[in-house]
Design a binder for these strands. Structure first.
Lengths: 218, 218
DNA sequence: ACCCTTAAACTAGCGCTGTAAGTTTTGCCG
DNA sequence: CGGCAAAACTTACAGCGCTAGTTTAAGGGT
């Protein structure tokens, strides 16, 4: 088959179809041939638009990260902005949980991830946090969000409840976790995020706030 | 080649060699043939000892998780025990960073991960936390530790610093993160963990502590 | 109007992968 | 001492990411 009169593939179409395929069937089922078949095309044709499979995955990951809202850092105080961002970040990841294992391995060279890191860091520094501290805070929240989206604590407990009861006395109810997976994960996230922000506010009051109020400009 | 006089493979030897191979060359380089070659053997021979490749990876992950120390929950107050556990957990994972992406996808049916979850949950409940809260706390800390071991915040920034400076003004220094990766990650972890525990202590005082001190047994 | 470059599909194929099937020889147990 | 299980083997299959080379259409330059 020669070059078609109208191109059958575009980067955008490939990324959209890849996202749908990963959402529907998981990362392991995502192969270049499988994706190509979904697009009515023959495997190697994808390489006219992307250099490698990882480049496709990067594009998928980038569009997922792209919807994260960091606008709070421009309008709200740093703690409220952090909270809004963390929830938005979590929503973006849990909307496409199957791509998270790939995405979680670092921002790499994905523009949206870098833009997000930039916005968070800038917002925290602007609020008075020392640069090193701002880096740490952004990283810590990223750890927490990525971890929560990745390793849904509850998802692992799906097996025969009898097995648990015998060996792990405190986990007798663990099989029920699967039923309420979403609410457990969200509850754990909400609790952890509140605790983190509470602790950060205390640190802020102890260090930044104290210093600023002792300065003429504060 | 027939059955040898002395078996060349044991489950333990396979797991140890697999761990070393993954540590040295990463998850993508870990294939059954590659592992077999390392053991002086021919690929399919591994299937006399493990049913699938994933079963080998589960065994590796389980031994990694197995060294995590949860003994603090038996001897110390809940907050100190959580801190000790979190650090021990993090050390175990960062000692074998290449297996973390596999390990982070849930406790599955790995005994060590389940035993760990059991110990944490039990310790928190014994300290007075309501069961649902104990589940949330264990999950939240697991998110944080796994996220920190998996997606080293700093590791992603390795590219040309000029690229960052142009598009992401606040990340001008980001390339330096790679140099200090370990200290940044540890600092972020320490900050986040302290903040988390600070917030949890406040919640404990507000709920559990208040109730217990109002009871005869408290 | 024509040529030429480039684009976008194709087919063929390489060296991998996980793993199933069947073979051979050894060690051990009844 | 016969026979069965164990543990290595060889062979093979389907699928993987990706490269190379081919074909034809689209579009720009003169």
């Amino acid at each position: 088959m020669p070059r078609p009169r109208q191109p059958r593939l575009t980067r955008q179409l490939i990324v959209e179809t890849a996202t749908a395929l990963i959402d529907a069937e998981g990362l392991p089922a995502f192969s270049t041939r499988r994706l190509a078949a979904e697009l009515g095309v023959r495997g190697p044709s994808l390489y006219n638009h992307f250099a490698t499979k990882d480049e496709i995955l990067d594009a998928v990951a980038d569009t997922v990260t792209g919807v994260v809202d960091t606008s709070g850092f421009a309008s709200r105080d740093w703690a409220a902005a952090l909270r809004d961002w963390a929830w938005s970040y979590r929503r973006a990841l849990t909307a496409h949980p199957n791509i998270v294992p790939y995405l979680a391995q670092g921002p790499g060279r994905r523009p949206a991830a870098l833009a997000m890191a930039d916005a968070v860091y800038g917002g925290l520094v602007r609020a008075g946090w020392p640069p090193a501290r701002a880096t740490h805070i952004g990283a810590a929240l990223r750890y927490f969000v990525a971890g929560s989206a990745l390793g849904s604590f509850a998802r692992g407990f799906v097996e025969d409840p009898e097995l648990y009861a015998a060996h792990y006395p405190h986990l007798r109810q663990a099989h029920r976790l699967a039923e309420h997976q979403q609410s457990v994960d969200e509850g754990a996230f909400a609790l952890g995020l509140d605790a983190l922000l509470h602790g950060l506010a205390a640190e802020y009051a102890r260090t930044v706030g104290a210093v600023e109020s002792a300065l003429p400009s504060g």
